[in-house]
Design a protein around this nucleic acid. Structure first.
Length: 595
RNA sequence: GGUCUCAUAGCUCAACUGGAUAGAGCAGCUGCCUUCUAAGCAGCAGGUUGCUGGUUCGAGUCCAGCUGGGAUCACCA
């Protein structure tokens, strides 16, 4: 039974009976805390049909609902707002239905499939704070789609080739002395990143020297020996020079080993990895086909372009005058390849920062022009940058917040706090480690996911992420608290049964609030998917935990003498814990049994 | 310069897509642990929603203009 739907239908019926007309769109919203009731009908739009004042319209509908709907106990009208009080009996039924539904919280399989791309790093340096937002977002959106019945394919494209990795290779060759992750004890991605920094340092020195000898800056940047070596390596790589390819494979291998460790700790996964080294030549044929069909055009110098001025954009190059591909060309090819690999997917979601909005706008337009229907179902999940108090993260200024370091700091902070609170006296070493891991990552993930993805956000590394208040650990704590209650109930042999649930007639205000929240779960999930926003789920989970804590404080469960109420409260607590667990799982956050 | 985007409490964020007196957390101040976990609960204080107009029963939300951030506009990726 869906309360909101039922209520809407009742109101529709009331309107059509009272005014002999169908109401188009009903505006139903949660009631403000200061008034009695849970659902509020905004009456202004209905005055056109009723030809009465908003207050009179509301009162008439309210009276009808009390008399005929069977779910409304009473109502009040304030200005043009009809505040409806759902009867406790109805709430109890709503809850009983949720309790009986073992698959509550996810929708049945639809047979639909979708692809989510996220992460997609370069292989020349370690993952940082920005990647964390990307990974957590992409993973979460994928989980949300699963929950509404999709089969989801998580992929990423690894930018494993190009000048950036050649820079690391060049610096390693010149200054590395054969250093490896094994010999240095450094994580592979960190080692390769170290040589990327090394490249930059030496490059700058060389450019400066050249400039002092009268070379212009632009020329100096081209003439710097280390840059020439990197460019040379890129050309050799493209020519499949054995030695260069070998070094490239070796260093990328180090990076992947490092990334694997990071991904594992983040708790993200991928079904298939695409590598730019395999895909960077794709797309050219598609562009040539498009050229034949007259979708694209060729300039005198032989370069191929698409004209998007009709769509309010510019002209965009797709093939250089020497016939080689650009980034856009490659993305066209990769998109098509993916739809061949996964023919059943209806679309792709690209989790990529908002600085590439223009790029994706163009990409989707081109795919549409090429005649691919699925282009309409491709979506750029664009998210804002994570700023530091000093502004943007800049690797050259050393202000980058490393993903591994940050996760470690969070876990350490969680462990310290757990110890201080004296909660781990009876836990084994392994349990403590696992708990610290859960709490630390929860704080981090929740922090990054609670903000609307579209918006840029602030992160202050000096002010460590909170573990109290509007945080992941707060929600985890609520879950652990409920689990303690359930353990106690179990030891007292108190088990909920459906007959007890149906016999509940009177509810505490806090209980109504929590049931209201639990009942919202699917709606919120759908909203989150529609908006591509895990933030909706994060804030929902917080509100649910908050409501439960109010109940917890107001109603001492085991003081209850009425067995029906006692059983109800146990079941009610259990469903709350399950809902919290499910919502958090959508965010990639685990919840502990005790903390 | 063109296009896009953002601006809400001291700080970090919400606001169900146009609805009631704009809500949380942190920071500050007051209370509450011999009763299920105080990583909690209750309360106080904090706002001309960047500015100016407009649209209507009603605007943080829509429109125009301004101010101030950010992004983007390569035969780079």
């Amino acid at each position: 039974m869906n309360l909101d739907l039922e209520l809407r239908q009742s109101i529709q019926k009331a309107v059509s009976v009272l005014y002999n007309q169908a109401a188009e769109q009903l505006q139903l919203q949660p009631t403000n805390a200061e008034f009695e009731g849970s659902h509020t009908l905004v009456c202004f739009p209905l005055t056109r049909i009723s030809k009465l004042k908003p207050e009179e319209t509301g009162a008439a509908i309210g009276n009808y609902l009390v008399a005929h709907s069977g779910i409304i106990a009473r109502f009040n009208v304030v200005k043009g707002f009809l505040n409806l009080v759902v009867s406790d009996k109805t709430w109890a039924n709503v809850f009983a239905a949720i309790y009986a539904n073992k698959s509550y919280g996810s929708l049945p399989a639809t047979g639909k499939e979708i692809m989510v791309e996220y992460s997609s790093p370069n292989t020349n340096k370690p993952l940082h704070l920005g990647h964390l937002r990307n990974n957590f977002l992409g993973y979460s959106v994928a989980e949300m789609y699963k929950a509404i019945g999709y089969t989801v394919h998580k992929v990423q494209i690894i930018n494993d080739r190009g000048i950036h990795i050649c820079k690391s290779m060049a610096a390693w060759k010149l200054y590395g002395n054969g250093e490896t992750p094994q010999s240095s004890g450094l994580k592979g991605d960190k080692l390769v990143g170290k040589y990327y920094v090394e490249f930059d340092k030496n490059f700058k020195t060389q450019v400066k020297e050249l400039q002092e000898n009268g070379v212009t800056e632009a020329d100096a940047e081209k003439q710097a020996p280390i840059m020439k070596l990197a460019v040379d390596m890129l050309q050799k790589w493209e020519a499949k020079d054995a030695e260069t390819v070998q070094l490239w494979k070796t260093m990328n291998g180090w990076v992947y080993n490092g990334f694997d460790v990071t991904y594992k700790r983040m708790g993200v996964d991928f079904e298939k990895l695409y590598y730019e080294s395999d895909t960077y030549l794709l797309g050219k044929e598609e562009v040539l086909k498009g050229l034949e069909k007259g979708i694209f055009f060729k300039k005198d110098d032989g370069s191929v372009w698409v004209d998007l001025t009709g769509d309010g954009l510019d002209q965009k190059v797709l093939l250089r005058s020497d016939g080689t591909s650009v980034y856009m060309t490659q993305d066209i090819g990769t998109a098509i390849l993916r739809f061949r690999d996964f023919p059943k997917i209806e679309g792709q979601i690209y989790t990529v920062g908002n600085e590439q909005e223009y790029h994706f706008k163009v990409l989707f337009l081109i795919l549409g022009k090429l005649g691919y229907e699925w282009a309409k179902k491709c979506y750029h999940l664009s998210y804002g940058m994570v700023d530091l108090p000093t502004g943007k993260m800049k690797s050259r200024e050393g202000t980058v917040v490393d993903a591994d370091d940050l996760m470690q700091e969070m876990v350490d902070a969680a462990r310290t706090q757990t110890q201080e609170l004296g909660k781990i006296d009876e836990m084994s070493r392994e349990e403590v480690d696992d708990l610290a891991e859960m709490i630390g990552l929860s704080a981090l993930k929740f922090f990054l996911l609670k903000v609307d993805p579209k918006k840029r956000m602030m992160f202050d590394p000096n002010e460590s992420i909170q573990l109290q208040g509007h945080t992941g650990p707060f929600i985890q704590y609520t879950h652990a608290r409920i689990k303690a209650i359930l353990r106690k109930a179990s030891s007292m042999n108190i088990a909920a049964d459906e007959t007890a649930l149906k016999n509940v007639t009177m509810l505490e205000p806090a209980e109504r609030e929590v049931i209201f929240k639990i009942n919202q779960y699917i709606t919120k999930l759908q909203e989150a998917v529609r908006e591509y926003s895990p933030a909706v789920i994060a804030n929902y989970a917080y509100e649910l935990a908050k409501e439960y804590n109010q109940f917890y404080q107001a109603v001492p469960i085991f003081n209850e003498s009425d067995p029906v109420k006692l059983k109800f409260r146990i079941a009610f607590s259990e469903v709350t814990a399950n809902t919290i667990q499910k919502a958090m799982a959508l965010l990639g956050i685990r919840v502990p049994e005790r903390m």
